[in-house]
Design a protein around this nucleic acid. Structure first.
Lengths: 98, 98
DNA sequence: CTAATATGCAACCAGGAGGTTGCCCATGAA
DNA sequence: TTCATGGGCAACCTCCTGGTTGCATATTAG
């Protein structure tokens, strides 16, 4: 999922979807300088990572943000940072004890 | 920086460095099934992303975690999630108003 | 001093990722 | 019905990334 967010194009797609709601592939392509197919591939990657969700509607395919997974990522970053904090605390207490 | 965390090997390197303190390249290589050179390259990528820091010590080069940047990433994820929450709130209030 | 250890540098290689093009299908509008 | 539009599929291309190997350099141990 970090890999999914690691691409510049995909990150801006996520940003757009976060801010806006649901967009079709053609709409999302409009404004970028890449092909519709490329956008489709990026959306697929984001979907595999659980970051976006698609809903068919007529001949259109609308994409929207899926917030749950991002929250999970945030929590995992917090846990990593927490590990570091605990390590520092251990180090500090070890030094004080000596 | 998401790209830096997007690689499996690098993510586990970060995890090790978070939990532990400072390690040499040889130590970090021990336990993985890749070459020392590959580990060096990964550490370089992480350093470019500001996630780790190196300190020379004798003939060794010790690497340790750099927590500040990760915190920044956490905040940016929070802001993205926040955008989504605000969009939902706007949508809700729009619906209620109609 | 000499040998072993820890690392750096550069060339090289294979595979995957991002991107494009061409063609086809489905659906909505006129 | 006919046509334009939104989208899917697949082949193809290029370049970057992850990884390796070989050799050179610095530092420490004996």
């Amino acid at each position: 999922m970090f890999a999914a967010l690691g691409d510049e194009t995909r990150l801006s797609l996520v940003a757009v979807l976060c801010a806006g709601g649901a967009f079709s592939i053609a709409q999302l392509t409009h404004g970028t300088d890449i092909t519709r197919q490329a956008v489709t591939k990026h959306l697929q990657v984001l979907a595999d990572a659980g970051l976006v969700r698609d809903l068919k509607q007529g001949r259109e395919r609308l994409w929207e943000f899926e917030p749950s997974r991002l929250d999970e990522a945030r929590r995992s970053l917090e846990s990593i940072a927490g590990q570091w904090d605990r390590a520092l605390a251990r180090l500090k207490s070890t030094l004080e004890r000596s």
